[in-house]
Design a protein around this nucleic acid. Structure first.
Length: 620
RNA sequence: CGGGAUGUAGCGAAGUUGGCUAUCGCGCCUGGUUUGGGACCAGGAGACCGCAGGUUCGAGUCCUGUCAUCCCGACCA
């Protein structure tokens, strides 16, 4: 080549060169596409790299972490950063491909943005502050210029900036753009192996529209695509109502995979299907005002030395926590406010903030508490408190309560809400809990743990306004573009699948995302007859486009069976021994306890049939 | 960032009130016997006991500091 010289070239040649030059930018994606072809290629165990572990590494506590390490899917580099080994990466690619197919099907258009981003974008949207330490950012030098970069925790800024430059008119809308890319978040505490890491693969999509209808259409399309994705991945999920956005209505849903080790709590109603993030869920109560009791006995003061917690006092007085009024002192927009919650309930800061119509709410420090209650922390109560207070709905239902006496080492018993302290209105101020009435029907709510695997959100114009992303309507008027954003944690989906699909022996992959579909095991690799039969099946599976891993290691059968259960491929085909003498191969699903004997000539057809009947499909 | 725990060979562990050449199982290498649910025999390699100081005649063991990892909490557009 002679890049500096003058060459006359054809237009076609230019396109070729352009394509080559672009490769560096889109290399990852190009490689992914090339790799997908390789996904269909078979593999021999001795030629790949699957280091399985017999024992559980001492650092791993949750099942997905243990199994992904043991099966050789991942290895840790440092806290919150993992290498995806060949086996693990194949699963990532399979999930990625399902995500891509469904995004495309829903009308999404794929692109690829830089992880490296100028800090100015985050300053313009105010998210440098909002993210705080979670945003990886650093200064560096180019010549004598100082540069300040961030590693993208998400891409609202970058894509909105792009769209602000490229999309000008309503005629170009609506459009939904997406990418599959590594995100960086400086988590204070990465944990649970691959479930919460500081670097992870995410599919993020952004919709741009000129009307609420267009936003709603894009939102619904993404919502449905998400359902299809999780169904095709064989992952159980619950769409839950999450924080309602600036536009109101069902502006946000999270997709939760129910799992014992999930960090999120979901309340749901089995009867009507209502489901919501515990923090957002309505408790299903309404405001009530207790009638004033005339002639009620005055509260009794009891000594509770050194007992400042509900636990301590309820033990000391042998009383149920549900008869306590917990008095939490918050500071809302600079003013102290007491929040009354039943002793066995948990206050919810978001609800408190909304009830007070405040912009900031935080728990008060000790000095403020002492000033307001005249007592050290732990002895606050509504009777005689020197600040405003608001009460949860359930407070009005307590006939006779125990509260702090606003005096060191003392509590009051026999406190009647509405009589001994003013109570004209109550609010929903606490987290919903198991047993609460469902806000949508007559049944009661239950609580399940969940792993958040996806989130769809109607953004509105927050980013388009701060980054000047506008369109012109047919009357030449300028409006901010209406946006939605939609994320799936791809690597978290993988972990969630392992977390929920396993047994004592190891992983039990759904057919659709298994690193290979079939594990082919020759019982004795030194036996020529066995190997001839196995190689034939191997070639036929390869010909049929089925992912197969042949365990050609010179190991005893039991050893290979244990590893096969551990890595959890859905179909196991065993050749050798008595079966082979009778001309049979032995075929078994990972979920089966007994194998089926199938004539060797029919093995591949049988496998195909198993794949077809066990492939998870989209219900929606 | 608060609280707790742990760092000994690639993995899992033992190591007593400070004492001899740091132990065991798995894995790894060589040779042999085996071959249907993690085989057996023989031989072998592999560790400055997380790191840095200190106490001591002597430190894996005691003290101080430091780093790393895990767990609980706070935090998580």
């Amino acid at each position: 080549m002679n890049p500096g010289g003058v060459i006359v070239v054809s237009a076609e040649f230019c396109v070729t060169i352009r394509a080559i030059l672009l490769v560096s930018d889109v290399e990852t994606h190009t490689n992914l596409v090339a790799d997908l072809r390789k996904l269909r290629s078979p593999m021999r165990w001795t030629q790949t790299f699957i280091p399985t572990l017999k024992e559980v590494p001492s650092d791993a506590e949750v099942p997905s972490h243990q199994l992904m390490l043991r099966s050789g899917m991942i290895r840790q580099l440092m806290a919150g950063a993992y290498t995806y080994m060949p086996l693990g990466y194949r699963v990532v690619r399979k999930v990625t491909e399902i995500v891509r197919e469904e995004m495309d099907r829903a009308g999404g258009v794929e692109l690829f943005m830089p992880a490296l981003q100028p800090i100015e974008l985050f300053e313009r949207t105010g998210r440098k502050e909002a993210f705080g330490n979670v945003l990886f950012n650093f200064e560096t030098k180019r010549g004598d210029r100082k540069l300040h970069f961030a590693l993208g925790p998400t891409h609202e800024e970058v894509i909105t900036d792009l769209v602000s430059r490229e999309l000008k008119t309503y005629k170009q809308l609506p459009v939904t753009l997406y990418q599959i890319q590594t995100k960086f978040r400086n988590e204070e505490r990465p944990r649970f192996g691959v479930l919460r890491t500081s670097e992870f693969l995410m599919k993020d999509a952004y919709s741009f529209g000129s009307s609420l209808e267009q936003l709603n259409d894009a939102y619904d399309a993404m919502y449905n695509a998400y359902c299809r994705i999780f169904e095709r991945c064989g992952l159980e999920y619950i769409p839950v109502e999450a924080e309602s956005g600036p536009i109101g209505g069902d502006a946000s849903h999270e997709f939760m995979a129910p799992a014992d080790n999930g960090e999120d709590f979901v309340v749901r109603c089995k009867s009507c299907g209502y489901a919501a993030n515990q923090e957002r869920a309505d408790t299903g109560r309404t405001s009530s005002t207790p009638a004033k009791v005339d002639g009620a006995a005055e509260p009794q003061k009891v000594a509770t030395p050194d007992a400042g917690s509900i636990d301590d006092v309820s033990r000391m007085l042998k009383a149920d926590a549900a008869t306590f009024i917990k008095t939490l002192i918050y500071v809302a927009d600079g003013k102290p406010v007491a929040v009354l919650i039943r002793g066995d309930h948990e206050a919810n800061e978001g609800k408190v903030r909304r009830a007070l119509d405040a912009t900031s709410v935080e728990l008060a420090d000790e000095a403020t508490i002492e000033k307001v209650t005249g007592a050290p922390v732990g002895f606050a109560g509504p009777v005689g408190i020197k600040c405003a207070y608001i009460a949860d709905h359930d407070i009005a239902q307590i006939a006779s309560a125990i509260t702090g006496a606003n005096e060191k080492d003392a509590h009051l018993t026999g406190v009647v809400p509405g009589t001994h302290f003013e109570l004209s209105e109550t609010f929903d101020l606490r987290n919903a809990d198991a047993g609460d009435p469902c806000p949508k029907c007559d049944a009661t709510l239950e609580i399940v743990h969940g792993i958040e695997v996806g989130h769809v959100f109607k953004l509105g114009t927050k980013y388009s306004e701060s980054l000047d992303a506008n369109y012109l309507d047919s009357e030449d008027k300028k409006h901010p573009i209406i946006m939605g954003c939609y994320g799936i944690g791809v690597t978290r989906v993988v972990a969630a699948i392992v977390e929920t699909c396993h047994d004592e022996g190891g992983i039990v992959w759904p057919m659709s995302v298994a690193p290979y579909t079939v594990e082919l095991i020759p019982l004795n690799v030194t036996d020529e007859e066995v190997m001839a039969a196995v190689n034939k099946i191997y070639d036929e599976l390869k010909e049929a486009g089925i992912d197969v891993l042949m365990d050609d290691r010179d190991q005893r059968p039991g050893f290979k069976f244990k590893d096969a259960d551990l890595i959890g491929l859905p179909v196991r085909v065993v050749v050798g021994g008595k079966g082979l003498k009778e001309g049979n191969a032995e075929i078994k699903l990972r979920t089966d306890s007994e194998a089926t004997m199938v004539p060797i000539g029919d093995a591949v057809a049988h496998v195909k049939n198993l794949i077809n009947t066990n492939m998870p499909s989209a219900r929606s």
